[in-house]
Design a protein around this nucleic acid. Structure first.
Length: 123
DNA sequence: GTTGTGACATTAT
DNA sequence: CATAATGCCACAA
């Protein structure tokens, strides 16, 4: 086999293990639940890789139906620029999910609660 | 190997 | 509470 690796940046159907792990964690977020990039990265086995989560979500196809809108920055702040299309899109979806959004911030559960939400709900 | 960039996080002011 | 600066880590040119 002649070196079939590269950076795995093109094929959406054959992502990296890290990307797959991130998608898995994001897909595990249930309705009414939100998590920060750092938390998602940590749960995906990638500590300190919050930025990588964003890249993974960006490259993720809509076919996966990933709840990317449930992933926010630290403190529940939306990572997108206020007023931007993506910003309003995410906020709209969050509100539609029953999540309270105020001034670009969402009610982000504490680490303990988040742990319970992620692991106490099902797996 | 260096430089620049990014859907972040944390700390300081 | 908002903004600035710094740190972090991976990837692209």
């Amino acid at each position: 086999m002649a070196a079939a690796r590269r950076t795995e940046a093109g094929s959406s159907a054959a992502p990296n293990a890290a990307i797959a792990a991130i998608w898995r964690v994001v897909a595990a977020l249930r309705r009414g639940t939100v998590a920060s990039y750092g938390t998602v990265a940590a749960r995906a086995g990638l500590p300190r890789r919050a930025r990588y989560v964003g890249a993974a979500l960006r490259m993720a196809p809509r076919s996966l139906d990933l709840p990317w809108h449930r992933v926010v920055a630290a403190g529940g702040r939306i990572a997108f620029k206020p007023g931007s299309a993506a910003y309003r899109e995410q906020r709209r979806r969050l509100v539609a999910e029953g999540i309270v959004v105020v001034r670009g911030r969402v009610r982000l559960p504490r680490a303990a609660d988040l742990d319970a939400l992620l692991w106490g709900g099902g797996c």
